[in-house]
Nucleic acid binder design. Structure first.
Length: 360
DNA sequence: GGGATTTGACCGCG
DNA sequence: CGCGGTCAAATCCC
């Protein structure tokens, strides 16, 4: 597949956003057809659309600026995707939380951390992210009360999928799981909810039943939709004050976040989307369980780390881009650069193989 | 019986 | 040498 140069990543993002806008426009049209829809619905939809378009413009500009610079061509040789740019310095680690994910193996693989919250502290099941994982180890970690579980993709042997994750329950809060994902899914497994909507149940799923969410069969599409919904959430009506203070919510006692995921599951799709859209160490996504009752809980993404070392990236600076987008849209999309820069590493691209991605 | 999980041992990096 | 990550045999569960 293609190496995701910075510009291409941005273009891909642009395509994503445009597709999003298309969908939103369609929804707006549906609202128009629905006699029950009210003005506020219109307004919300219109605002979302406006935000999306503004974003598209901003990203287009950023891509243009970036492509004029250098940035590309410095991809690592050992990795199909570059693992660099913005994340290095800025996305690195949330200082207030644990981090310490600078370990040994798998250095080349992109890594991002999500924080899952389960509604019930005593359930031991790890949060279901929609993929099939196979546990291959567990270890007590120094300084942690709870052991860390090591999981790899069920299809690792069958399809050579390198995706792994580490799940550790927070010692401070029993409801919170820190999940560190490593590597992208190259397998063709469908996330459970998707699988159910399309074919038989997802492989190996011993976890929650699939919520009937979107019905797209393409995992990439689903990621995209998760992305979109995360976006929607952030840009919803009156969502112009959605950033940092979310961190103040105590995990267990946190009031429902002022937004919710209407349809996306707490899958890796959503996690990835949230990761992509989370400003470094600031955004904090949470979703009340009642929207997806079948899923263990909510997730928060608080870190995304793509590669072993900080790297300088040409073109617009991350913060600049974020600012550009924010200004352009009136929303806080400071995280967009994140996606624009890192998109190739997110588990979007490799899913359906090179030939039938949703972005082409 | 097959696949997933458990668990102690082993390995590599800092 | 210690710690974190992985392996693989034993065990469990459907």
């Amino acid at each position: 597949m293609q190496d995701g140069a910075g510009g291409e990543g941005g273009i891909q993002l642009l395509l994503t956003i445009l597709a999003d806008g298309e969908e939103q426009a369609r929804q707006l049209g549906e609202l128009a057809d629905d006699p029950r829809s009210r003005a506020e619905h219109y307004r919300g939809a219109a605002r979302r659309l406006q935000c999306t378009l503004g974003k598209a413009v901003a990203v287009a500009k950023a891509v243009e600026a970036a492509s004029g610079g250098s940035s590309r061509g410095t991809d690592r040789s050992d990795s199909p995707r570059s693992v660099d740019e913005s994340s290095g310095a800025t996305a690195a680690v949330e200082p207030q939380e644990r981090q310490v994910i600078g370990n040994k193996r798998r250095k080349g693989l992109p890594r991002w951390t999500a924080k899952f919250r389960v509604p019930d502290a005593n359930l031991e099941a790890t949060p279901d992210d929609g993929f099939s994982w196979r546990k291959y180890g567990q270890k007590d970690i120094l300084g942690a009360k709870f052991p860390r579980g090591y999981y790899r993709c069920t299809y690792r042997t069958a399809q050579g999928c390198p995706a792994t994750k580490q799940v550790q329950r927070s010692d401070a809060d029993l409801c919170v799981f820190d999940v560190t994902y490593q590597g992208e899914h190259t397998c063709h497994q469908k996330q459970r909810h998707v699988a159910v909507a399309t074919a038989h149940g997802g492989g190996g799923g011993s976890q929650s039943p699939p919520p009937s969410c979107h019905e797209q069969g393409d995992p990439s599409m689903q990621l995209l939709m998760g992305f979109k919904d995360a976006l929607k959430v952030e840009t919803g009506p009156g969502a112009l004050h959605q950033d940092r203070d979310y961190y103040d919510h105590g995990p267990a006692s946190a009031p429902a976040a002022p937004f919710s995921f209407p349809s996306v599951p707490f899958g890796e799709a959503a996690a990835a989307a949230a990761a992509a859209f989370s400003a470094p160490g600031s955004s904090y996504f949470s979703a009340p369980p009642h929207h997806c009752p079948a899923v263990a809980g909510s997730y928060d993404v608080y870190d995304y780390e793509a590669g072993p070392g900080p790297r300088v990236r040409g073109g617009a600076e991350p913060s600049e881009l974020g600012e550009v987008v924010s200004r352009a849209t009136g929303c806080d999309y400071s995280s967009l650069y994140h996606h624009a820069g890192l998109d190739p590493h997110l588990p979007f691209a490799p899913f359906g193989g090179p030939s039938h991605g949703p972005f082409q």
